[in-house]
Amino acid sequence: MSKTTPHSIGARVLHALALAAFVAFALFPLFWLLKVSLTPDDLMYGEGVRLWPSRVTLDHYGSVLRHSQFPLFFRNSLIVSAATGLLATAAASAAGYAFSRFRFRGKAWVVGVMLVSQMFPLVIIVAPIFRLLAPLGLTNSLTGLVVVYTAFNTPFAAFLMQSFFEAIPKDLEEAAMMDGATRFQALRRVILPLTLPGLAATGGFVFTAAWSELLFSLMLNSSAAVSTFPAGLLGFVSKFSVDFGQMMAAGVLALLPVGAFFLVIQRYLVQGLTAGAVKG
């Protein structure tokens, strides 16, 4: 790697170009989101293809925050995502610990069923889930969403937590047990503090997944009072026009919490995804 032959310089330039192209491709829609959210209505179509409008405005943000129901959707999303993050992470930690540490009958089956549950396109099961939740009073309710999101996010989160637990040597909890701790005390005093980054990463992952979920939010809830923001975004589409400016401004606002969250946890997330692989 340290040798700088013409060949390797060429290869590195190509490598950098490929990366730059990928990043540009991936981030351009986000840039467009920001650009449109700042474009005044009168320039929306006139300067539609310009990379940056000749005038920018924060009017769209103002009207989204003051005159739309977006703050309500935002609050609903926050409640649903936070609750889902907490519940799914708690369940996933327990399951991940069991997968990592215990041998029990039917373990392979449980893991298999959890994997299979990840394979269905969710569209297929929206209708049956609606039929199940309706008599329970869980449609048009934030609780219903929390239940569904927790159920669908726990399997992957459990595998993620398992890989974090695998990275912690069994010797540590055995040492704690020799030192007079029960298994649960060993978990609480030795393993849990070491898994905090893993818990944060898993929690963040689930939070983000719930935050941006549209399908169930749209199908299970019809009342605006319990809409989450992805469903709420559709409210900017009316029969006759689409208010792109406000819709994009709302999108940028919705991006902020997850963006900040991901910035904090991304290091741990990558660590967790590779921990199991490296250990073999």
Partner: peptide
């Protein structure tokens, strides 16, 4: 249970709480 046997163990990996 191990905790009630009052034995101390030194592990190959040392197993110190990091």
């Amino acid at each position: 249970a191990p905790k009630d046997r009052d034995l101390a163990m030194v592990f190959q990996s040392y197993a110190l709480y990091p």
